[in-house]
Amino acid sequence: MNGLVEILGLTKAYDEHHVAVSNISLTLPRGKIIGLLGPNGSGKTTLIKMLNGLLMPTAGSIRIGGKPVGVETKAHVSYLPDRTYLSGNKKVKQILDYFADFYKDFSRERAVGMLQSLGIEPDARMNTLSKGTKEKVQLILVMSRQADLYVLDEPIAGVDPAARDYILRTILNNYNPNSSVLISTHLIGDIEQVLDEVIFMRYGHLVLYTSVDNVREKHGKSVDAYFREVFAC
């Protein structure tokens, strides 16, 4: 069986001196929760943008579910960017309408349920919500889709521990064997135990792609500790 995501010789060069992603080849299977790890500026976000069609590769190819990045893959990839991408003067329920209209795999009941459990009013306007609440609304929208691939860019950066637990639980509750979750982060310790596999990136290169238990077994330390050792300057 083919992988869910097949990346071949992927390169993104902004100019001659600035190569953000350099010749990466990877195959991501279905049914896994995968950490995309690396220090700031290692090319994680560039890779993620290319997976979502927000950047065109300079060279190489990406196939998701066997198809090149485009309208069809966008219908099956649920993306949480590292910023607020919702218009401030919209109400939460208007954004639900928006998602329901464009994404066939969006479950409004699921989203409403999650909003309710967090006590977020569907009538609230986005710009009246706190930054943390806005992030939760986005996560709820993204996780309420029944996508093949979830791409979460730094979902736990700058959130309090309770919110982090909520995010991790939401990801785990949503787990299904046909879809995979790709989570980029530089805070590995916090999410290590929910990950199956980890991808290490540095200076745009793929350093390592292996399972969490593999690292622990082989190196006798947590992925977090191993990561610090590998990337120590």
């Binding site: 785990l172 135990q193 929910v194 199956d196 969490v212």
Partner: peptide, 17 residues
């Protein structure tokens, strides 16, 4: 597996293993 994985806050595949 799913319930226990959620309770332990670990990956369901790990719990399966």
């Amino acid at each position: 597996v799913r319930e226990l994985a959620a309770e332990a806050a670990v990956n369901p595949n790990t719990m399966q293993k």
